[in-house]
Design a protein around this nucleic acid. Structure first.
Lengths: 212, 212, 212, 212
DNA sequence: CCTTAATCGAGACGGTACGTCGTGTCTTTAT
DNA sequence: ATAAAGACACGACGTACCGTCTCGATTAAGG
């Protein structure tokens, strides 16, 4: 009458156990991250489930909740563990070249698997994420982008390539803003052509010295 | 094996019914929209549940699913029914004044209840929304914003306030991009000061004629 | 955004209409009975749904509820319209022959499609059916069976084949009781062998004159 | 997109929980049985709903579906847990006395709450129940009844109270068949008078030695 | 013959229950 | 002590029918 349920370990003692030695600490954490990123990348944040991650990582939900109080925290940590840092731009001689590289780096990063997961996560900013996600994005994405941009602009200012007074916090936000905007609402993906137009039609005119 | 059978005319003489006439068509739709917007505004998209909407609108879930195949579709329609259109900007004599008004209108719209719901929804762009949400945002928010901006800039170009060649599609995307960016990642809300800086430090320098 | 719904009669004026002339009165009733019996026979009472009957009979639910207040009433009426009456048994010369024919008739009737539906319905006796189903079974099945049995027994009594005093209401219930019992709980269906045993081992001993 | 997110330690300091310790295994099962039997007894099988049982037993539907694949299975198990076994009849000296007691025991059992639920369930035999309910009734009701009856008859045969050759499988089915038949179709309930008539007019004549 | 009223076909409506899935907590068993 | 597994209480999901109701379209009847 009752369902069989077939508790493992009841009858057959051989099949499942000791497939791999029981992981703990960092090894377990790494497996969880991989499972979480896989789900994030393939299905977005919505289809990232604690149950699914536990299953894919061959562990129990308790192991997750012991480490992260919520799905968002787990996702953030998983992402943080693979997202490559936005490195500073070396002196390439011209603002144009340096900005071009900055944009290109950002673009490539957002097209990577980790970037895909990142984009999936960013969607949650307005939600229950509260400050957590916003902080994360600021710390890992927007902050470095702005900082690197400011450095490039200041270097150009010292070179005389940049109009005096053109460099300020807001100007440094223009290019990440445009890239994220394009990512979310643009018809196509962020391609090289877009980056060129952004550079030539927006960024350079914005900082160009006024009169030859 | 499910029916109540409760033969008509058995016991209770129809106590609860006929409280209000049964709504249909547009009337019902409107009630559903109101309930959905209330939930969207107060709890965000995550706390918008079909069950909750049905309950608040005093109807059944079937009435929802008959009209919208998913939560997102419902939310979009509900939003579309209240979101005020972004009207064009009249000729105010100067590009600065017109851009200022454009930005202000957008800012006010995003701060309204409908705008709050809108922001809550935008988070879903990357998700299962597929093209739906992207299309909606393009049609109702970004598209009009870009169009209005382009018109203002072209008018300024005719007046000679705008540097020749400065007006293109990408430039018209700068101000909505910056506003949405600020909305999502900025520390504080979008206030008047931010709008002023955006105008003075970014938009005007970008289009200003080269020879002062 | 909204589902299409495609109201018939909106655009295309040609396709669906006038497939068959609209039925009413007896013709419609007959179609409903057929649909109901089909569902009763194939899936039992549980899978007989008003919605399904309306669909299969190409009519609306209102046409059903206008005629029958409940599913049970419909089922009963549908059944009543096809169930053949249990005719009386002619004088065959011996109680054995007459009882044998009585049992055989009953058995055949219960094996027919209508009988299958009948069995499906009988299950509901204890349920919400209240007196309705019980009355129906009594009037159409048990009553005639008992009556016909009593007549056979009395005829036998007059012939002297039946022990004096053996005939009473309860004895006349034995054979229908045994057949229904077998129908519900017996391992196999009611076959000829079973009928023979019932006759030889139970019914005849029960009424046989005591001493040769 | 479904989670509440409601971070732990946010607002309410855990008001409702820990009312009673969370039940598991047998304890939970018992509570479910009680709830199910209550619904079965009061409203019949039709008004026994999984949702209702879960609610009354203060658990979730998942806990039910984890154990029983369907309502019928649950009902059967619940019933099986309370239905008293039909004990064998001791030697009382005469077949009449022993049969009387057998019938009486059965009658009392069917009038008990569990018996009421049993009757409600028996209605489902012909339905989707497949063999399940049939098997249950055979194992718990009909089988023991037949077995006990056979034993009584054989004992009587040894005593000489029973006509030689009168005892066979079919004869042992007569009294349960008559009782169930009466239960379902009889005008009144199964009372003492009916039992007496059954005994005197049917069972005893059926087995009485031929030579008075 | 033409209006008028009834009824038909279709399906929306407000509900209840279904069976599934995921959440976050808690137990159990075996390392 | 912690890992793996999964039960537990809960809430929402999307579907199926219930019985009531509205809405044209059709059709049988009465004037």
């Amino acid at each position: 009458m009752k369902q069989t349920t077939a508790r493992p370990g009841a009858g057959e003692p051989a099949a499942p156990p000791a497939a791999t030695a029981r992981r703990r600490g960092k090894a377990l954490e790494q497996a969880i991250f991989e499972a979480a990123l896989e789900q994030l990348t393939s299905g977005g944040y919505a289809r990232l489930t604690m149950e699914g991650v536990a299953g894919a990582a061959q562990t129990g939900k308790a192991a997750l909740y012991r480490r992260w109080p919520s799905k968002l925290e787990l996702a953030l940590d998983a992402l943080g563990s693979t997202l490559p840092p936005l490195t500073d731009v070396p002196d390439l001689g011209s603002v144009r070249a340096e900005l071009r590289q900055l944009i290109g780096t950002f673009q490539v990063a957002m097209d990577s698997p980790a970037g895909s997961a990142m984009r999936a996560l960013m969607a949650e900013v307005d939600h229950g994420g509260g400050g957590l996600l916003k902080d994360f994005v600021m710390a890992r994405l927007v902050g470095p982008a702005r900082r690197a941009g400011l450095e490039v602009l200041r270097r150009g200012e010292r070179r005389g390539e940049v109009r005096s007074g053109a460099v300020n916090e807001m100007v440094a936000d223009v290019w990440p803003a445009m890239l994220l905007y394009r990512t979310k609402f643009g018809a196509e993906s962020v391609d090289a052509e877009f980056c060129d137009h952004l550079l030539e039609d927006v960024l350079l005119p914005l900082i160009r010295p006024q009169a030859g």
